[in-house]
Amino acid sequence: MKLLLSNLVVVVSLLLGMPLIGIGQESENLDQRIFLLTNELRCLVCQNQSLAESEAALAVDLKNKVVKLIEQGKTDDQIREYMVSRYGDFVLYDPPFKLKTMLLWWGPFLILLLMLIMAKSFVSNKKIITGSQSYTEEQLRNARKKLNE
């Protein structure tokens, strides 16, 4: 069982890690870059839309500004910084990780951990069948054979 658990842990943590890899890459493609950037910047005058989605006058101005800044060779981070220095963290749909957003980013995983600890009480005060990790390779082979029959 230890084997299975360790396997599971590896797989799960791999799967957990995978989505994180895809985020934050800078795209080479210009259209794609504009699209991604204006999607994560919030329109200030709308109820709740990104710059990309909005057709409000200010949103159009800011979109054009983004394009201009890209043409000037600014990086995505510099463009985000440009917006934040004028409008504050409010413009970022992707809240930056800092002291006051720590709970936001870690919270979900803390909650998960807390619930796992609580859930242990469902299981651990029951007897867990011991010796299950002592299956030999032969027993495993037999089991497989049985299954294939």
């Binding site: 989505p19 994180l20 985020i23 999607n39 994560e40 919030r42 990104s50 504050g88 963290d89 409010f90 413009v91 970022l92 749909y93 992707d94 809240p95 006051k100 957003t101 936001l104 980013w105």
Partner: peptide, 12 residues
């Protein structure tokens, strides 16, 4: 202060 939490956060 004010912040926004949008799709990039929720997606991840």
């Amino acid at each position: 202060g004010k912040i926004s939490v949008g799709p990039p956060y929720f997606d991840v």
